[in-house]
């Protein structure tokens, strides 16, 4: 199946800006799904609000464009009623960790079988470039014109601490790694988190003088390194990418089934 078979061509060209990383994530995600050979009818994509959330309109799976920050809650409901379906939940950094921060940590804690993709462009793009919890100290945005004094989350450490059983990080520059990690995350049984560092040339790039989308992609190449590389020991500021955690843990729907069986025995 070609990747064009997985999209709703009538809605293209998409709304994202020229050079936006979200399109690259869509590209990589479609290739991952093609590679692992999932059927369109097995997949449900649930998204919240924001530039990243528009992705669910472009794919020809079962899709739900829900409310801000609550994509994981809607996905939880779908998974509980139809556990045989594969849930994919793409979210922006603000959608996942500011508005939806509470939902995110508790979905991870329950270890429900779904894949949360955090497309991290470090800004709220749709509403005009306000700073997000992933913008980081010292960055410029529409709401931090004299530079941001908030510290940022480390998505990987946060997800590990919250109990996610699969945690990975990659960038839009590393397309092959992105396809590979997304594929493994979707196959993984349990709550998978994949952080994809993405570029917003329109807001984050422009406000922080990072240049064009191409310059930002070059930045991802220079500022990241595979997990455990020698380069990281020399330069601790490099951001590691790869699969940080992959462990077998009891999955929520399976445990719930066991509870139903146990309760029925009592009658």
């Amino acid at each position: 199946m070609a990747i064009k078979d997985y999209i709703r061509e009538r809605f293209f060209p998409h709304i994202w800006c020229p050079g936006c990383g979200h399109g690259m994530v869509l590209n990589g995600l479609l290739r991952a799904i093609e590679k692992i050979g999932l059927d369109k009818n097995e997949i449900v994509m649930v998204s919240g609000i924001g530039c990243s959330a528009r992705i669910s309109g472009y794919v020809d799976f079962h899709t739900l464009h829900s409310i801000h920050g609550r994509a994981l809650s809607f996905a939880t409901g779908i998974k509980m009623s139809r556990p045989e379906l594969k849930l994919i939940v793409p979210m922006g950094d603000g959608d996942a960790l500011a508005i939806g921060g509470n939902h995110f940590i508790h979905a991870a804690r329950r270890n429900m079988d779904m894949t949360a993709i955090i497309i991290n462009n470090r800004i709220y793009g749709m509403t005009g470039g306000q700073h997000s919890p992933l913008s980081g100290y010292g960055t410029m945005s529409a709401t931090s014109p004299y530079s941001n004094i908030d510290n940022d989350f480390d998505v990987v450490e946060l997800s590990v601490a919250a109990g996610a059983s699969f945690v990975g990080r990659t960038t839009t520059y590393h397309t092959k790694q992105m396809t590979d990690i997304l594929g493994q995350a979707i196959i993984h049984k349990g709550f998978s988190v994949v952080e994809i560092m993405s570029q917003c040339p329109t807001y984050f790039g422009r406000k922080n003088r990072l240049g064009s989308a191409i310059d930002m992609l070059e930045g991802f190449r220079k500022n990241t390194t595979p997990i455990g590389s020698k380069a990281k020991q020399k330069d601790p500021d490099l951001i590691e990418r790869g699969i940080f955690v992959r462990k077998k843990m009891p999955e929520y729907c399976d445990e719930y089934d066991k509870i139903i069986k146990r309760a029925m025995k009592g009658n």
């Binding site: 990747i3 064009k4 999209i7 293209f12 060209p13 998409h14 994202w16 020229p18 050079g19 936006c20 990383g21 979200h22 399109g23 690259m24 869509l26 590209n27 990589g28 479609l30 290739r31 839009t172 397309t175 092959k176 396809t179 989308a213």
Partner: peptide
Amino acid sequence: KLCEFRCPDLA
């Protein structure tokens, strides 16, 4: 196929 994999517009 790096162009095909990286294209944000699937174009």
